[in-house]
Design a protein around this nucleic acid. Structure first.
Length: 594
RNA sequence: GGAGUCGUAGUUCAGUUGGUUAGAACGCCAGCCUGUCACGUUGGAGGUCGCGGGUUCGAGUCCCGUCGGCUCCGCCA
């Protein structure tokens, strides 16, 4: 018996045809002398009807069929009478009248119900992760994984049309201490030495430019041994791109093209070019380098109004080069004490000391009324652009803390108050990222993007001063030719125009506190390569999972990964990571201590 | 590494101030049922209250520890 059709394709036009369907038993409804079976495969659901009268043997078989049994059904497509049509199913106008049923395989009762109505009755995620292959049978996850496949297919089609060459780079690389923690792999042949899995194929794609491939792309698996988040897994997939003789505009046009193509899969259209915002503006206006532009609610600066204040906490903040900023929650003058306390707890997570507030109800009330006085409060409300009915939420502190807490509060309030429209997609380029980031633990400056990023021409003199005159604090002001794509508050990906001159690369390493010896030890092969005719080049890497999350409207990365890991980086299905035999360890020269 | 939150039947949950035999719905098993599609109906089985310790005459409930899921901070060039 061969399958002739899938469970999603039969329509009234097929009525009268003899068909064979194969799939899983989603539901059975037994009426004594006849039985309905909902047969499911990845294409859909088709109702099978088996009657004692017309197919006695098949009916006997159907009696034994249970949930998730795999069966084959031979029968005839029949039209349903008008009153028995199921409008919820694409196949709802027909059913298959079975003449023969074959049980291809039985199935244990599943540990949780696959066919549930609404997500509130869905089994807990850890149980579903343990039986991931069952959870994946649900149409929601089937759709996510299929959209992921479609996304990647679209990308390949787009890149190949534009002459990009897909190059596979090694998974077994060499560890570099910069950036994220590496996953390392012991070498048997070279006892005591280790490979590292790529955090990204950064250097290899640059070497591909030096090799003359001109336009590279890869659907690249990347690995980072860092703690997980709702949008972060230890292994993930990037669309990795690199272009020779390219400036920032050319990279932007390419990525905008990719994004338009991909979002067309859900009939979303982007206007190109995408809007742009500098990093400095994003931080100032939204307190974030990945602002969600689906709603307004920008941060307002109250520092100038409070410059002369004698309220000690504020005065201290301003003396220490801190800031006092706020967001306005429109129409939320009715926030209760309890709600404001909750929001205060929320901002404290980001290091804020407190959340001050002004409520413009029938009268003006504020947690600062006593210390600042009515007049000052009114002035602050005016600066914040708050009107009657609004609540002003204020944080004072270090610039980084104010940005982080108010940036997050802005999103939190928008979520609570349902300010974010569905099916709205707001892309943004964030540009002019800082080249260096001060590391409070080491007292050094680290590369914010990566050490192969080129500087903005305007900032090169400043950079030379920082290096040659030892004014290292200037490093914090140097801007890089680095950029991110942000969509709906998600960092979709980032890239930069790279350094293609050896001398500049040396200076960057110097700024990062890397001695020439250390630099040679870690990147010697790359530095040497730079000297053999490196074209100017730049590129980008975009997170596939985050794109698919937005396409599918989920906020959980596990929903778009077929076999994901938990927040503690374990696979509950195969129970990895696991122990290995002593013999294996011995062969590798590895001893487990403690 | 830190914080919050959850953990009770196969599943989703309820469980009062610490007090008799821990409940409901779905699922499962058996029977009945001529048009269901969340079928209906009758009956039945099913519990290490995550685990360990403590307080108490008595703990699902209170305390301490621990394990696991999720979310966030740190971390993620």
């Amino acid at each position: 018996m061969e399958r002739t059709h899938t469970c999603g394709e039969l329509r009234t036009s097929n009525v009268g045809e003899a068909v064979v369907l194969m799939g899983w038993t989603a539901k059975k409804r037994d009426f004594g002398i006849f039985t309905f079976i909902d047969l499911r495969d990845r294409y859909g659901l088709t109702q099978i009807v088996v009657s004692e009268e017309t197919a006695n043997q098949a009916h006997e078989k159907a009696k034994n069929v249970r949930g998730e049994f795999v069966i084959a059904v031979k029968g005839t497509v029949v039209a349903r009478t008008p009153e028995t049509i199921n409008k919820k199913l694409p196949t709802g106008e027909i059913e298959v009248q079975a003449s023969e049923i074959l049980i291809l395989n039985d199935a244990k009762v599943p540990p949780f119900q696959l066919e549930v109505v609404g997500s509130e009755n869905l089994a807990s995620e850890d149980l579903r992760l343990k039986y991931r292959y069952l959870d994946l049978r649900r149409s929601q996850l089937q759709n996510n994984i299929r959209m992921r496949a479609k996304t990647i297919a679209k990308i390949r089609e787009f890149m190949e049309m534009r002459d990009f060459i897909e190059i596979e780079t090694p998974i077994l690389l060499k560890s570099t201490p910069e950036g994220a923690r590496d996953f390392i792999v012991p070498s048997r042949i070279h006892t005591g030495k280790f490979f590292a899995l790529p955090q990204s194929p950064q250097i290899l794609k640059q070497l591909s430019m030096i090799a003359g491939f001109d336009r590279y792309f890869q659907i690249a698996r990347c690995f980072r041994d860092e703690d997980l988040r709702a949008d972060r897994q230890p292994e993930f997939t990037q669309l990795d791109i690199e272009m020779s003789f390219a400036n920032q505009e050319m990279v932007f046009r390419t990525l905008e093209g990719v994004m338009r193509e991909v979002f067309a899969l859900i009939d979303a259209d982007f206007e190109t070019p995408f809007p742009r915002m500098t990093y400095a503006d994003a931080m100032r206006r939204f307190g974030s380098d990945k602002p969600d532009l689906r709603f307004k609610m920008e941060l307002a600066d109250l520092s100038e109004d409070l410059r002369e204040t004698d309220f000690v906490p504020f005065a201290t903040v301003l003396e220490n080069k801190g800031e006092i900023k706020c967001v306005v929650a429109r129409g939320k003058a009715d926030y209760s004490r309890k709600q404001l306390d909750e929001l205060q707890e929320f901002v404290k997570r980001y290091g804020a000391g407190a959340l001050a507030w002004i409520k413009i109800g029938d009268e003006l009330t504020s947690s600062l009324l006593k210390v600042l006085g009515q007049e000052k409060i009114e002035q602050l409300a005016k600066t914040a652009n708050a009107e009657k009915g609004d609540a002003v939420l204020i944080v004072a502190g270090k610039k980084s803390v104010v940005a982080a807490s108010l940036g997050a509060l802005r999103v939190e309030v928008a979520k609570r108050e349902n300010l974010i429209a569905k099916n709205l997609y707001k892309p943004l380029w964030v540009t002019e990222f800082p080249m260096f980031e001060y590391n409070e633990d080491t007292g050094n400056y680290d590369a914010m993007h990566h050490p192969f990023t080129s500087l903005m021409d305007e900032d090169v003199p400043l950079f030379k001063r920082a290096i040659e005159d030892g004014e290292t604090e200037l490093l914090g002001k140097i801007r890089a030719r680095a950029y991110d794509i942000v969509i709906n508050g998600y960092e979709i990906g980032s890239g930069s125009i790279r350094i293609h001159q050896r001398e500049i690369q040396n200076l960057i390493f110097k700024a990062l506190g890397l001695t020439p010896e250390k630099a040679r030890e870690r990147f010697g092969f790359f530095l040497e390569a730079l000297e053999y005719g490196t074209p100017p080049h730049g590129g980008f890497a975009a997170g596939i999972e985050r794109i698919v999350m937005i396409l599918q409207g989920t906020d959980n990365i596990r929903d778009v990964v077929a076999f994901p890991k938990t927040a503690s980086a374990q696979d509950l299905m195969m129970d990895s990571p696991g122990v290995v035999d002593d013999a294996q360890l011995k062969e590798l020269g590895i001893k487990i201590v403690e």
